[in-house]
């Protein structure tokens, strides 16, 4: 049975610690092993960082869905309606590093596609999932 946990917070780098803690707790509930817990913790951090790097203002909406043998995470940047934040030039090096890290740690991911550049997602399966 799926378990859905949603987390919404202001765009504030100091709050990434909360995101990492939440990701690790959900990975543990999904019975991931220690390495997989660390993988999800870092991958979700990178997912958020890729969306909020060089941002000022707005909110970040995360949805964690835990199934029997996998965790799906969707992360969406929501600008303030009254004051749409402008984004400074993207740091290509950091973005490339984020992609490399996420790619190595999860089974599937999609970062800010052309249809919805403000939403990224990932899926991580448990290595020794029960049939």
């Amino acid at each position: 049975m799926s378990e859905v946990i949603e987390l919404t917070m202001p765009v504030d780098p100091d709050l990434l610690m909360v995101v990492r803690f939440t990701a690790a707790a959900i990975a543990a509930r999904a019975e991931f092993d220690l390495e997989e817990v660390e993988d999800l913790r870092l991958a979700v951090d990178e997912l958020c960082v890729s969306l909020i790097r060089n941002r000022d203002g707005g909110r970040l909406a995360l949805c964690f869905t835990r199934d029997d043998d996998q965790v799906d995470v969707t992360c969406r940047f929501v600008p303030n309606a009254s004051d749409p934040p402008k984004r400074e030039a993207l740091d290509e090096l950091s973005l490339s590093l984020s992609l490399q890290i996420i790619d190595a740690l999860v089974d599937e991911h999609g970062l800010g596609g052309p249809d919805d550049p403000e939403t990224s997602w990932l899926r991580k399966r448990r290595a020794h999932a029960t049939a």
Partner: peptide
Amino acid sequence: TFIDSTALGVLI
């Protein structure tokens, strides 16, 4: 205890 792409960017 933790590093991400941002840390690597600074080191690079």
